[in-house]
Design a binder for these strands. Sequence first.
DNA 1: CATAAACTACACTCACAAGTTTACTTCAAG
DNA 2: CTTGAAGTAAACTTGTGAGTGTAGTTTATG
Lengths: 240, 240
Amino acid sequence: MSVVYAAFVKSKLISVLFLSVICYGVDVFRSYIYKKLKMKEKKLTRSQFKHASIIQAATLEFQEKGFKVASMDDIAKRAEVSKRTVYNHFASKELLFEAILEEMLTMLSAFEQVPFSLTVPLELQLRSLVDNEISLLKGDGFLPTAKVILGELMHSPELMTNVMQTFNKQESPLTVWFNEACEAGALKCADPEIVVTQFIAVIKGFCFWPQLVQGEEFPNEQKSALIAQTAVEMILKQYT
Amino acid sequence: MSVVYAAFVKSKLISVLFLSVICYGVDVFRSYIYKKLKMKEKKLTRSQFKHASIIQAATLEFQEKGFKVASMDDIAKRAEVSKRTVYNHFASKELLFEAILEEMLTMLSAFEQVPFSLTVPLELQLRSLVDNEISLLKGDGFLPTAKVILGELMHSPELMTNVMQTFNKQESPLTVWFNEACEAGALKCADPEIVVTQFIAVIKGFCFWPQLVQGEEFPNEQKSALIAQTAVEMILKQYT
DNA sequence: CATAAACTACACTCACAAGTTTACTTCAAG
DNA sequence: CTTGAAGTAAACTTGTGAGTGTAGTTTATG
């Protein structure tokens, strides 16, 4: 039956090509997750309210435990809703998971293409790229989403390679910018891909991996600024 | 009952302070995993041979599925051993997991302190630090170990913070080297910690995270050399 | 206030996986 | 060639969690 499980994860996540959002660079991110529950104040039908509670509870459960270990009973308790109600809204655990993934990914799908410009100083452009990246990583929903997705994907390498093969790195806005910058001669580098990876690595080394893997706090304003500054300097010093 | 599960993971992994090996820099790594099975040729008792088969099979299972989803029946099948035999060697799933963790971590415990030297050129020293780090990451057992441990730890943030608080970053050999280099004035930087993190990030951005999370291939010789080169240059250009 | 839609409590089925029991086989060593 | 230690196959117990069925309660609305 674990074959069924694997197949499920595969079929459902394969559509989640946005994964690259997490692995490569992305830009603007809007954080409005969980505000749904404020609907208490607004006029919400009982049904809509329960629906939102379930989603919220399930999100937490999946985050904390992963798909398999999370239990529908616990989700129901956490949502302060009867188990039957959970099943009235979502026919199965799989579908609930899927719904949550979709919910999360719509949040992350607000891309913003930053075109390379010959007139604006390089430093300013880089600076705005870093700032975008950091504010994305800092967004409320990003880390939880990453936890859920990476937690499931880590144990199925074939799936990951499939996803990554499908979704070519080229499509990342950051990659586009660096490619253009290199072609225009503003950055002197043999392989733009390496530069992008370095650029992202230097940011994520502070603002993503430690938080994901060690539960570290997100750097404060001051430290963020320093990190951004050094990332920009690094690129400038090495490639101009 | 998931409380019991959480408690188990906690109690067993908390002793695994070597985790820092994965999150921070480490140096030399010896890869001799799985060679145990070569004992077919050597004179091994039947019991020892079965024991090794079980460990090998279980390692794979835990890697692919994580602790909870891995099943003892599947492990037995995979090891071509009866389920009862598994239980004769390891009293419970927990103990089997623990045994494997220990097995893996002994592999990773071969540290090698690299002292900062005033006479050797900086570039050479940095170069050897990078090379050490890369060959560690490249070692046969490193990635699987990381998968198993991080896969379990990702969903228990309190545990992670505990572990990280206990095992101070200061102890990493790389950190030691950079601290010494800064104190000696060879590197001009306000905060050595940031430099180390950058240094490691630029390596892991190519040689660890993509492999862990996307199942990407490890960079070949040529690319590794390039990565190492740029990492060293980056530090030199920015901090000297 | 009546009615239907949605929610609840709870008892239930079913599947699966951890771990055990038992009766039987294999193997190595004296 | 026998004896005991270790392995095997298969049936078994037990616990847990997914999902369902039901009888009764809440709530919004005409």
